[in-house]
């Protein structure tokens, strides 16, 4: 039997979360002597997947929608005892659709490797990071969708045998167009996020936030009121009712730290808060804090980071 892993690509290369997915599948497979079958679109070099543990790589022409791909993966899942999908925007539709089509028990928002394999138990985030649930998937083809960045990458060699297959894809949903900002780091997958709030006073002041994000290779984000007033696009709104992030580094500038904001960012590994108000609730959730005016601190931080990058 095998663990099947879905490998998503991005502009012709693999998504970083896809390597994490293969590594996840390898860890799971190792626990019960299984092999890892990676299913991928045709465009990227297959060899890279073997470096994270793919034993068998199936290249197929994937459909363009979650439902279409779910049907294809179902076709490939006959001899499979588990499935791993990264919780990207596509994965978050694909995993439940596949679960409904195959009957495989599902854990989404998963933040741990398997705690045990039969039955499968994993930990998942619940109550917007205010709780952690241990869930049991009692079924012969459990499906795990994990939060990108929550597992980490362990290179382990797999056999890397390659096969091409044709599996047709059907979906009544027609894709009219897609627009993706090029060059920008996608928020849910970002390793570092620079986020700013109402303390920044107006949209014209975001230049320094973008500079800071630039030095760090970070994505930019904002608090909810900032996107509500239209200073920043809705797609940058993080929090309980926005995008949930868990980067290695989250820098919050001029954000008070309301409970709804924290609910979407508190899983970040290291949190830095810059705020003029020493009583701002965000400091309680932070690892490092600076009480100070963003307009003074941020430019200094940009310079200090540039100097650090130049020296290292």
């Amino acid at each position: 039997m095998s663990i099947l892993v879905f490998v998503e690509d991005w502009n012709g290369a693999y998504k970083k979360a896809s390597f994490e997915a293969v590594a996840y599948a390898k860890s799971w497979a190792t626990m019960n002597g299984n092999r890892v079958i990676a299913v991928t679109n045709t465009s990227a070099p297959a060899g890279e997947l073997a470096g994270y543990g793919a034993d068998h790589i199936i290249q197929i022409g994937l459909g363009s929608t979650a439902m279409g791909i779910a049907g294809q993966l179902k076709e490939l899942s006959a001899e499979v005892s588990g499935i791993v999908i990264a919780g990207t925007s596509l994965g978050r539709s694909l995993a439940p659709a596949l679960s409904a089509l195959t009957g495989g028990a599902l854990s989404t928002n998963t933040i741990s490797l398997p705690l045990s394999v039969s039955p499968l138990q994993v930990k998942r985030g619940a109550f917007s990071s205010k709780g952690i649930e241990t869930i049991e998937l009692n079924n012969d083809m459990p499906i795990v969708s994990f939060v990108p960045n929550s597992i980490g990458l362990e290179p382990v060699a797999g056999e890397g045998n390659l096969e091409r297959r044709e599996v047709s894809s059907n979906d009544a949903l027609e894709v009219l167009s897609t627009e993706v900002a090029s060059g920008k780091v996608a928020l849910p997958e970002a390793e570092a996020v620079v986020s700013a709030g109402r303390g920044l006073k107006g949209p014209e002041n975001w230049g320094m936030i973008e500079e800071l994000a630039d030095v760090l290779g970070a994505a930019t984000a904002c608090s909810k009121p900032v996107s509500d007033i239209g200073w920043r696009p809705h797609s940058e709104h993080v929090g309980q009712t926005g995008i949930q992030v868990n980067p290695n580094l989250y820098i919050a500038i001029g954000i008070s730290g309301a409970i709804q904001h924290l609910a979407g960012v508190s899983a970040s590994k290291t949190i830095v808060v810059v705020n003029t108000d020493p009583e701002a609730p965000f400091f309680k959730a932070a690892d490092y804090g600076i009480v100070g005016d963003a307009f003074e601190v941020v430019p200094k931080l940009v310079n200090a980071l540039r100097a650090f990058k130049a020296a290292s």
């Binding site: 599902l106 709780g131 049991e136 998937l137 400091f283 690892d287 490092y288 600076i290 601190v297």
Partner: peptide, 28 residues
Amino acid sequence: PTKPVSFEKPAGKAAVKMVDAENVDELV
């Protein structure tokens, strides 16, 4: 086919380390 086994609260953070606004090099 799924069932919750248990719930826990996330581990609390250690106390925040404050860095002086004049000393961002220390933060880096």
